[in-house]
Nucleic acid binder design. Sequence first.
DNA 1: CTGTTAGCGCATTCAC
DNA 2: GTGAATGCGCTAACAG
Lengths: 335, 335
Amino acid sequence: MASIKDVARDAGVSSQTVSNYFNNPSIVTVKTKAKVEKSVQKLGYIPNASARRLRNQRSYTLAVGIAPSGYSQIFDPLLHALVSEADNHGLRIMLYKTDSKTDEIRQFKSLVSGGDVDCFILTDTVYDDPRITWLTSHNQAFVLFGRPWGQETDRDSSTAWVDVNGRLGIADVTRHLIVTGHRRIGFLGWPDPSGTGSDRRSGWEDAMLTAKLASKDELKSLQIESEDNIRAGQLACQKLLRKHPDLDAIVCVSDTLATGAHTFLRQDCHIDITGFDNNSSAQSLGFISLEQPSSEIAHELVRIAIEKISEIEHGTVHADLQSQHVLLTPRIVHG
Amino acid sequence: MASIKDVARDAGVSSQTVSNYFNNPSIVTVKTKAKVEKSVQKLGYIPNASARRLRNQRSYTLAVGIAPSGYSQIFDPLLHALVSEADNHGLRIMLYKTDSKTDEIRQFKSLVSGGDVDCFILTDTVYDDPRITWLTSHNQAFVLFGRPWGQETDRDSSTAWVDVNGRLGIADVTRHLIVTGHRRIGFLGWPDPSGTGSDRRSGWEDAMLTAKLASKDELKSLQIESEDNIRAGQLACQKLLRKHPDLDAIVCVSDTLATGAHTFLRQDCHIDITGFDNNSSAQSLGFISLEQPSSEIAHELVRIAIEKISEIEHGTVHADLQSQHVLLTPRIVHG
DNA sequence: CTGTTAGCGCATTCAC
DNA sequence: GTGAATGCGCTAACAG
């Protein structure tokens, strides 16, 4: 509740000196600094956020959308990492609801006009996403978590994103299976169209082709699609095994499907299963999985957000475009 | 970007009139209202949040803590419901990190002194929680999600909370099993001490004792404890069945454990399983579960938050204490 | 019922 | 290097 004036009075200086102490420390005498420091400590002074925001015309907050479905793209650990990373830079994370893409744009309008948000973090974007169009045309900072899937054009190069290289991750895990003696490796994927799903699947295809463990035609037969839930995973696994009883491993596009496969096969089976996300099921059932590097994702997301905010503030595009398209590698976690 | 002055100029009135249009509409002429309305629409005016916050000394934001562990008490659907409900009342949800209870108090300090937050929503509280002590002594509004477990005293009556009646929910589901012909019903629970876990277990005990399906001693033997993960659930289920091969149903304290039990038993088995939370596993595997009423929880949480903020603002405790201790009933969801 | 005045807390000009 | 003004956008008190 103490204001800058209280500190100034207590320290026997003027309020602007206190302001300088925080915003431009280099121009304050060491002696004065000590006095201010003491008073700040004594009064527990913290600058008032609203006043600072009003004065600087910046909200110091990042907005993250949260979808109605239980399964939003923003997973729990990432949210925490984001809050933590933002905190390191004096930024806050605010949530807004995204019941639909049009509803989301209504939210943008309210948030932006109200000066509530400096930068948006979007998920689940597609090519020609109306949200991207809106934000761009309103000169509003934003970063995507997840590449915008679909036809790519030049115009995308100005759209910053951070994503996880599922293709590489799945290829890594497939290679791991190969070098540990597996030869007949199936794939349990999501139904098309799914950008993320196709990307991950191609990792398995890459590794299999390179290792000459299957022809392109055989790859088609060695994979099966399933909705992302345990029961569907169990059934798909059963179906795949009926077709290929000789499988010695199954790479799954998600931990949910891997859990389905694993629980269908039970312990006594010699078929190895891998998943993606390293959720609690992967840990407890002990199958190999790929962990999304939440901290790094958050780190990059916040870094780019700050860049974008600065770009918009100064009306420049000084940043290296490459550095705003970040592809992170998931880490293999052995059960 | 339009300010209240722009609207005033465009509408040919003073800026106060525009302010009144929003904050005290009853004192504005119908004719004037129309003019203002038109200009607001035309300019897409939205009041600047920071200015309003500074002026009114209110942040219009609720803070929700987010824990580092993947499994925070605040689950995804609740978060969405919270954002949605807050939005209905012109409130925002801000996240802050809670790496530890002491770290959390440091966050409080920063958030409160900075005027960033009007009310906190806490989870995972215990009796004599240092956070509660701090918030209370600093006259700061807060609501708990989840009762503070432990020894209860008078002093708790001023602490508002919203919780889900796990005991009643589990008793309901147990009764459902009984009336559908089950007699030997086991329980798969969490290890003590767990307030929530004990609460839920006692629901099963209630129903079993009332139905005279077991003596108090037998109840002890019909239950088993397990860490909350799938593998542990599988093992505990196995162990329980070895002791009681005649079980015809197992009530589980969580969907995770239910998933463990269900996947251990497989389809062909005649033993029914129930869980708690109605997560995606419950839905896909098709076992009975209890759904947390996220919308209601959010509704009550926000309602009480608003009450608390008003109490603190006016320095009164006008609210009915009963209405600030809300126990909601989970809903049975049949697979 | 409408318009004028003042100030929320801070930070960026300027003189000194 | 420090202190005195000014205004960010808004709204609660007044006066008209």
